[in-house]
Design a protein around this nucleic acid. Sequence first.
DNA 1: GATGAAACTTGGGCACG
DNA 2: CGTGCCCAAGTTTCATC
Lengths: 197, 197
Amino acid sequence: MRELDDTDLEILELLTADARRPYKEIADHVGLTPPAVSDRISRLEEQGIIQGFTIDVDREKLRGDTPVLVELEPKPDAVDDVYAAAADLDGVEELFEGMDGRVIVHATVPDASVRSWLESRLDLADLTGYDGTLLARSDRIVGLSADGFSLECIVCGKTITDDGVTATVDGEIKAFCCPSCEKRYLSRYESHRDALE
Amino acid sequence: MRELDDTDLEILELLTADARRPYKEIADHVGLTPPAVSDRISRLEEQGIIQGFTIDVDREKLRGDTPVLVELEPKPDAVDDVYAAAADLDGVEELFEGMDGRVIVHATVPDASVRSWLESRLDLADLTGYDGTLLARSDRIVGLSADGFSLECIVCGKTITDDGVTATVDGEIKAFCCPSCEKRYLSRYESHRDALE
DNA sequence: GATGAAACTTGGGCACG
DNA sequence: CGTGCCCAAGTTTCATC
C-alpha cells in the first residue's frame, strides 16, 4: 500500500476543517491540480483513512438535552452485550471500550435519570456498577498536527516524514526518520545503559 | 427561531451518514425538491445545529498509534489551564470536561508512555492525578433517533428550549426551562432534604 | 490539462396559514 | 402578508479522458 506523505496529511486537515472545500482550493494549497487531489482523496477513502464524509451536529442544541459521560462496569462475561446494548441507547454519540472491560458512553440524554435511560436498553444486572458525569463542555479537535515534538531524526538529523518510526526509551518518546536510524540509536543506548549498570 | 421538524431531523441523519449525498437524493427521501433541501441545510447551519462539514478520519490507521482515554484530575484552580493544555496535546481527538472538574481526553498517542506524552504540553503539578486506559475499540454512532421523553420543565410545565438549564439532584438529572425555575426547584429540594436529615 | 456531465445556486411565481 | 415550496435557467464544480 502506498505510504502517506505530507500532502496527504495536508489534504486530510483541510477536509477535516471543511469537507465542502472545492478541490481547486485544496489543489492550490498543496500545489497540485484538482484531478490529482481527487485521486488522492479516492485513494484515502479506499485505504480506509477517510472513513466517510459527515457533518458535525450540535446535539445539545438539537434538543434541550444534557451531555453526559457514563462509565459502565460490565460483568466480565457481559462486556459485548453491554457494548452492543449501549450502542442502541437514545442519543449516544460515541462508545469506548477499555482494555479493562469498562464501557464509556458519550451521549446527550433526555431530561431523565441516567438510570432509567440505561434501563431502556440494557439489563442493569449485567453491570457491577455505573457512574454518570454531566459534561461542562467538550470539544472535537480538528487538525492532525502530527508535528508536536522534534521533527528531526535524532540520529541523522533528517526531517521525519510519515515513514518515520518512534520508540519509547526510558519513558521518553524518541522519533527517527527510518527503522535503521532507530536500530542504530537503540543499540547505542543499550550499550550506554549497560555501561552504567 | 424556527422549530425543527421531522424533515430536518431526517436531513440531519442522511447527512450524518453521508454528507456527500446529492440534494436530489435527500429531496426524494423527504419529499421535497433540491432547492428546498438546500434552504433547510443553510438554515441548520445558521442555527448552529450543523456545525460544519467534515470527514471521519481513522487516526489509528493514520499512524501506528494507540487509542487511549486519559482521565485527568486537575487541581480546582487549574481546570481551565489543564483543559487548554490538553487540547494542544498531539493526537487529541476529543476533550470532555465534567461538572466535577475532571478532564477526559480521547486521543491516539504515539507509542510511548502516557506520562511523557502528557508532560509534553501540561504541567503535572496542576494535577492531583491521572489515569490512562487503552481502548479495545470505539465507535461513533450515526443516527439521531430523537424524541424520547418529557421535554417539559418540571417546575412550570413549559416546553424546554435551548435556553433551558439542567442540574443534578441526588443523582437524577433535572431539566428546567430557565435558571429561575432551577433556583426555585433547588431551594425547595434543599429545604426538603434538610427536613429529612 | 481539457471536455462533458452533473450538481448547486439563483430568481420568479404560487399556495398556504 | 409572510413563510415555505416548486420550477427553470445560469453557473460552478466534479470526474473522465
